[in-house]
Design a protein around this nucleic acid. Structure first.
Length: 1036
RNA sequence: GCUGAAGUGGUGGAAUUGGUAGACACGUUGGACUUAAAAUCCAAUGUCCAUUAGGACGUACGGGUUCAAGUCCCGUCUUCAGUACCA
């Protein structure tokens, strides 16, 4: 009987769906186990073979846990809000909800054909109002909370209001905006409601604030750093500027320390934890306040010794009066180097810059500020070599020496880190050193026995401080402590811990995202829509682009106002600022919906609650989470933040959502390349017009298809690095004198030199192109537009590279055809067989025959009857020698497979199955005693064939909950060992000796062997090492 | 620069606490079956020397520890990923 995988797989997929085999129940006598995959974004391109890798691994684990008697929750859903659907909508006018639904359908079909054991009754879609209702609800909870540093948790905002009205805010230890003003209880009670709300907003865990963003005026949207290339937008190449905008933010910084500490109690990979630690970026040091002295005061201060008493007292007054005006606060990790400060540097965006700059320096400073504003942050970061800055003309006073310190601005200081200002210690910091050298600022040396003529000395361990008053002779640790103490004594500093982690901007100027449950009242203050009126559904819009006035796409909605009487969305025309108010136009970012979905699966269909308390208490958290490492600092950090917040509010029972996390590696595709001739980007349009005739002729020349040439490796490198010149082109085309003769033949009468301003570029092409010797019409490939003259040049040995699978690289392999040709079980086995789960590895469809043949062999093992009919002997247990061997094979396999699954080493268990099948085939094993438990072992990996054979064995129902076979070590006991006999560490021959033979007897036996004598050639061995059960080594 | 991971045949990759390097596959070659192909089965397959027997070399490179090193230690190089003027 043939192994008809297509029929078998369909049959069992239908069976599982019809019987809801994998539906998890909330509450059970069995212990719970929650296996989760990172849910996919349903893109239009569908799945490629890389996507299911992690799903297969988690599915194997989930199935294994079911065999072990766990109540397994293994859900799946879709992260269905996102940019591609919106982009498609902009291009085609098609509503994102429609395309998303279609894409989900495709995904579901593709997932189903692979035979996953998902509980689809719990499916979630982030773009579904019944889901995002709760995303909005969590947003409201965040809005209604503040972070109390005393209790170290989030609390209801009402507790803060109570404190304010009874004692003001001076004693409150809360995480809040930097610039909150102090007020007393009386002040608070006298404030009007608007003022009170403004203040509260500075404490809420989600808040509105002016944030500096990358704004692209042409696209009318904010761009993320990675959407900007060389200072212009990746899409369209439009200029991008830094701009302040009012945006919703999430006060994740409140949780910085807990996010850091929490890493210690979860079983995630070290590299991932390390990325999160770096991202949180804790650094311990001090904050130091420097008083700014006015320029005239500074001058008198400088000449103090020469001035009269009267003048001195006047200047002192001057100093005092001006120091009250401005203070510069800096953060430093090296307070021990405070006596090495020779200047200060502010970020150009620092708010003090305009206030302290002297009239003489104004022009220079303003020019510099403007110049930096034009550069994107990434641009600034990328260009670290160029030193630039400007002197403000202002001076600050050293807290101890009272010496004047010039205040500079420089773009190496980032506004977004610390306080946006640094005390510059050129002798101890490379950047400060370079800056000081460049602008001829003195570099005082405060390190004993260190030469700083060539560069700064930043080694903390070897530091001995000198020239530093009370810090002299101290090491880094001592000096730091003392410096902080002294700063505290004079009230100009304190020990401080700084985190790199910034509050997360939560507003997007997009259509296809969760709308905020927020309207703006007559004072322009944000108000939450009461939870019982959620969800606030996305409005319909005519177009998905920003409005002409630059408002986000929701600004196009005509029915987008909130009626506080009727508690529903009404037409904008009705806005009266009394009962009907405008709604928020921004939407939430992609990570909103994915930051809590793992909790929703526990009770996905609950309409009353986010999830019931019973469900949350039962499932607790994710036991195993599998997904890509690219989410290390995004999704995985935000989710931990929300989880901790929800924990503080008593909504969820644990403050870390996933106990164990594994990153699956990427499956890479093989790309092929060709080389195109393209109108040079540098060629001005006017030039094209002049030369249009020649350009067209060249185009005609190449128009009839693909040409094949030989290109050298060197030339290829040139092309890739955009260094190929026309001379190189001439060289290629002269090959075989092909160009000249062809040109004449066609009567085009052009010479190579006539074709001006042509670039040669490397482009991805479908692999079939490279394999084909035919001329191929490439005009149907959209990427190749009218700027392309047309020739495609292939190297003799087509260049291939292994890279990420992507539609644009034409290297995508779809699982669909593989399921048709080889079956889902083969696909599952092969994906696991490719290599370790975490590793990046290339895909090669050809190799699948190996695992496919194994499945056929396995099938045959159960069909050794007449004409290959199903035959498994269920005769008792004949103690024949054959079965002894088979038992050994079985138990060896049980042991190895169980170990492998628990170590997530799925690739080696596939090998183990192959070995088992090979051995049992050789043993001609037909015993049910062996072949039945074997099926349970294989079932997590290849569930369809396992179910089919399980049924044929006469079992009713699914194999999925059959108990995992128990390993019995007694079957593996060996009576003898084939000892490797080595001489000086080199294995020469083997010898079969009894297991229980003593060390001495082994040595005797080995020494008596003729080959030993041969090897020794008469010499007497110096030493004989015998490790019973392992090895014999003779040293001589 | 920093952090993390990794370097093993033509390819993907195996190798418990240091104990027979290259399991299991792919590919290649040869053979069987077939009119032929496919499928299937059998054999060989790290490199080099040798007719065989056998030998030398071999886990990025250079050292070291050890009876014994892919594995442990020191140094170097390369690749990949993340991150970056973080004060």
């Amino acid at each position: 009987m043939k192994y008809d995988f297509n029929k078998i797989e369909k049959k069992w997929q239908k069976y599982w769906a019809d019987n809801q085999t994998f539906k998890a129940v909330n509450g059970s006598d069995k212990p719970k186990y929650y296996v989760l995959d990172m849910f996919p974004y349903p893109s239009g391109a569908g799945l490629h073979v890389g996507h299911p890798l992690g799903y297969i691994a988690s599915d194997i684990y989930a199935r294994y846990k079911r065999h072990q008697g766990f109540n397994v929750l293994h859900p799946q859903g879709y992260d269905s809000f996102g940019l591609p659907a919106e982009q498609y909508a902009i291009q085609t006018g098609q509503h994102p909800a429609i395309t998303t639904a279609e894409n989900i359908k495709t995904y579901r079909r593709q997932l189903d054909q692979i035979g996953f054991s998902f509980d689809w009754s719990r499916e979630v879609r982030t773009s579904d109002p019944s889901y995002y209702k709760w995303t909005q609800w969590i947003f409201i909870q965040l809005f209604n909370s503040w972070y109390n540093n005393e209790s170290d948790k989030a609390e209801d905002i009402s507790t803060l209001e109570t404190i304010f009205s009874s004692e003001g805010n001076t004693k409150v230890n809360a995480v809040c905006d930097d610039n909150v003003e102090n007020f007393t209880a009386d002040d608070w009670n006298s404030f009007d409601s608007k003022k009170q709300q403004e203040i509260l907003l500075q404490y809420r865990l989600t808040y509105l604030a002016e944030t500096e963003v990358n704004w692209c005026p042409a696209l009318g949207t904010v761009l993320a750093n990675d959407e900007i290339v060389n200072g212009v937008s990746e899409r369209g190449g439009h200029p991008v500027i830094r701009k302040k905008m009012t945006q919703w933010s999430m006060r994740i910084s409140a949780y910085a320390e807990r996010l850091l500490q929490g890493l210690d109690k979860i079983d995630w990979t070290d590299s991932l934890k390390e990325s999160q630690r770096n991202w949180i970026g804790k650094s311990v040091g001090a904050s130091v306040t420097f008083n700014v002295i006015a320029s005239e005061a500074k001058q008198s201060a400088n000449y103090k010794s020469n001035t009269s008493d009267a003048e001195r007292s006047r200047s002192d007054q001057n100093v005092i009066s001006t120091t009250l005006n401005h203070q510069i606060e800096v953060f430093t990790t090296r307070p021990d180097t405070i006596f090495g400060v020779s200047f200060m540097t502010l970020a150009p965006e620092h708010e003090l810059v305009s206030q302290i700059t002297t009239p003489e320096q104004k022009a220079e400073v303003e020019a510099y500020v403007l110049a930096t504003a034009k550069r994107s942050e990434r641009d600034r970061m990328a260009d670290v070599k160029t030193i630039s800055g400007a002197f403000t003309g202002a001076y600050a006073e050293h807290p101890f020496t009272k010496e004047p310190i010039p205040v500079w601005i420089g773009d190496y200081v980032l506004a977004g880190y610390g306080t946006g200002a640094v005390m510059s210690v050129p002798c101890g910091d490379e950047r400060d050193y370079a800056f000081a050298k460049h602008f001829n600022i003195p570099i005082p040396n405060i390190f004993d026995g260190v030469d700083i003529s060539e560069g700064a000395f930043s080694d903390k361990e070897k530091t001995v401080i000198g020239n530093s008053d009370f810090l002299n002779g101290m090491n880094y640790k001592k000096a730091t402590k003392r410096a902080i103490y002294e700063l505290e004594q004079i009230g100009q500093g304190e020990g401080k811990t700084n985190y790199r982690l910034r509050d997360a901007v939560f507003s997007r100027q997009r259509y296809w995202g969760e709308p905020f449950p927020v309207y703006y009242d007559e004072n322009g203050m944000p108000q939450m829509i009461a939870a019982e009126h959620l969800p606030v559904k996305l409005p319909e819009v005519e177009k998905y682009l920003p409005t002409e006035t630059g408002e986000p796409p929701l600004g196009n909605a005509t029915v987008w106002a909130w009626d506080t009487n009727k508690n529903e969305v009404v037409s904008n025309d009705l806005i009266d600022n009394e009962t009907i108010h405008p709604l928020e136009l921004n939407t939430m970012p992609g990570w909103a919906g994915s930051s809590w979905y793992f909790n929703r699966y526990m009770d996905a269909n609950n309409t009353e609650e986010f999830a019931s308390k019973e469900a949350l208490d039962y499932w607790q958290d994710v036991d195993l989470y599998i997904g890509g490492s690219e989410h290390a600092t995004g999704h995985l950090l935000y989710s931990r933040f929300w989880q901790k917040f929800l924990f503080d509010k008593g909504i969820v029972p644990v403050d870390e959502f996933a106990k164990k996390l594994i990153n699956q590696g990427m499956i890479l595709g093989t790309s092929a390349f060709a080389y195109i001739l393209k109108r040079s980007a540098e060629m001005p349009v006017s030039y094209v017009n002049e030369d249009f005739d020649k350009f067209q002729k060249a185009k005609n020349f190449f128009s009839d298809g693909l040409k094949t040439f030989v290109i050298s490796k060197e030339l290829r490198n040139k092309i890739v690095h955009n260094q190929a010149t026309k001379k190189d082109l001439v060289e290629i085309l002269k090959y075989d004198d092909w160009f000249d003769s062809e040109s004449k033949k066609k009567g085009l009468d052009i010479k190579l030199n006539d074709i001006s301003a042509i670039d040669i570029r490397e482009v991805h092409v479908p692999v079939e192109f490279v394999n084909s010797s035919n001329e191929i019409d490439f005009s149907k490939y959209e990427k190749w537009n009218s700027d392309i003259i047309g020739a495609v040049i292939l190297s003799d040995v087509a260049h291939r590279e292994v890279e990420k699978m992507s539609k644009s690289k034409y290297n995508v392999v779809s699982p669909d055809q593989i399921c048709i040709d080889y079956g889902a079980d083969s696909l599952r086995l092969y994906e696991m067989f490719l290599g370790p789960l975490e590793q990046y590895k290339p895909w090669n469809t050809a190799g699948i025959t190996g695992v496919h043949n194994f499945l056929k062999k396995l099938w045959k093992l159960y069909h050794q009857g007449e004409n290959g009919s199903f035959y498994v002997s269920s005769e008792g247990s004949p103690p024949s020698e054959g079965l002894g061997e088979a038992l050994k094979t079985l138990h060896k396999t049980i042991k190895k497979v169980q170990e492998d699954i628990e170590n997530f080493s799925f690739n080696t268990s596939v090998s183990t199955f192959m070995i088992a099948a090979n051995e049992l085939t050789a043993q001609k094993c037909t015993s049910k005693e062996i072949l039945e438990p074997l099926l349970v072992l294989i079932s997590p990996y290849a569930p369809h064939i396992a179910e089919e054979l399980w049924e044929k064995l006469g079992n009713s129902g699914s194999i999925s909950t059959a108990p995992f076979p128990e390993f019995d070590a007694s079957h593996l006991v060996e009576s003898s060992k084939n000892y490797p006999i080595s001489f000086n560490g080199k294995m020469r021959f083997t010898m079969e000796l009894p297991m229980d033979m003593s060390k001495e007897d082994i040595e005797k036996a080995v020494m008596a062997h003729e080959k030993t004598q041969e090897q020794l050639a008469g010499r007497t061995p110096k030493k004989v090492i015998v490790v019973p059960g392992k090895i014999v080594n003779i040293v001589g």
